[in-house]
């Protein structure tokens, strides 16, 4: 399974100079390009899933890519419930997998 950034050298859009950025995802450094969304950076680095669902703990990453499905929610710089596919990444962003609250035990 590989998701990746199109290699600039072979990209038909002929990309110009770009600004590299680095974010951390659950403590690990991930590199991307200024102008990418958080989802773009993660997928570009072959990170496919960054959340688990509440009831079954199933992995979720990007699905609709346009802000509709809310699969890609992450915590960014201490703020939860940010759609990774809608938020432009900035160097130094701290992304944490959104801890899906487990079902309550005390019921």
């Amino acid at each position: 399974m590989v998701t990746r950034l199109v290699p600039p050298a072979s990209d038909p859009v002929e990309p110009g100079a770009f600004t590299p950025i680095t974010i951390t995802v659950n403590g690990e450094s991930v590199s991307g390009v200024l102008g990418q969304t958080l989802a773009g950076v993660m997928l570009g680095a072959n990170v496919l899933a960054w959340r688990t669902t509440r009831r079954q703990g199933r992995p979720r990453g990007a699905f609709c890519g346009i802000g509709v499905c809310f699969d890609c929610l992450v915590e960014v710089n201490g703020q939860r419930d940010v759609r990774a596919c809608q938020r432009r990444a900035a160097s130094g962003d701290v992304v944490v997998s959104q801890g899906a609250p487990p079902p309550r035990e005390d019921r």
């Binding site: 509440r54 929610l73 939860r80 419930d81 801890g99 899906a100 609250p101 309550r104």
Partner: peptide, 14 residues
């Protein structure tokens, strides 16, 4: 008698 309620996304916070 009308009333509104707001609902948050699922939260870890209880």
């Amino acid at each position: 008698r009308k009333g509104w309620l707001l609902v948050t996304t699922p939260m870890a916070h209880r």
